[in-house]
């Protein structure tokens, strides 16, 4: 791989501009887990005219439902879940200032358009590499919806979390680029 690229949260405009689909980056800072049930609650909350339990401006959401933390560890195995299930909710959150999403798998055209419009990024974490990804997590704190168990919103402090840029603000999509390059 080429030279290692490190980025931090909160994510600023300069970082967003520099990220290109296909590159590997290492992310450090605070990120928030949220998957199916938490997203549904986010949108229900917004529809009721209420505030989200977290300020998502310039933040990164990780589509992840970790396995339980064994004693003495901040988290269990914590790889990404399939992002497409969050596609119906993502454009709204991007419009409110969310800057990054981490998951695995294809996004809808609406999400890709919102990534361009609101200047954000979609990262892929290696699906099924939950043990490896857990080594990037320094600490975890439940922020909301504790009753959802593995689906609760958890703030993770991460250091050098290995990610690939899938969708950037320039309309590039690593999944499409990859297939075009290697299809025989």
């Amino acid at each position: 791989m080429e030279e290692l690229k490190h980025i931090n949260t909160p994510v600023d405009e300069k970082t967003i501009k520099e990220l290109k689909a296909g590159e590997k980056v290492f992310l450090s800072g605070y990120i928030f887990t949220a998957r199916d049930a938490a997203h549904k609650r986010f949108i229900d909350t917004l529809n009721e005219g209420k505030e989200l339990p977290i300020d998502i401006r310039n933040q990164v959401i990780y589509y992840c439902g970790p396995s339980p933390a064994p004693p003495g560890k901040p988290i269990g195995s914590c790889g990404p879940t399939t992002s497409s299930r969050m596609d119906t909710y993502a454009p709204k959150l991007l419009s409110l200032g969310l800057k990054g999403m981490i998951g695995k798998g294809k996004r809808s055209q609406a999400v890709k358009d919102a990534i361009k419009q609101y200047r954000a990024v979609y990262f892929g974490a290696t699906g099924g590499a939950g043990a490896l990804l857990s080594k990037s997590v320094i600490s975890s704190t439940i922020i909301a919806y504790e009753e959802l168990g593995p689906e609760a919103v958890v703030r993770l402090e991460v250091r050098n979390m290995p990610l690939f840029v899938i969708n950037d603000i320039y309309g590039n999509d690593l999944y499409e680029m990859g297939i075009l390059k290697y299809r025989r």
Partner: peptide, 13 residues
Amino acid sequence: IAKEEKIPICQDT
């Protein structure tokens, strides 16, 4: 890492 740390390979067990 999973083997050494005794944690699941993938969180989706």
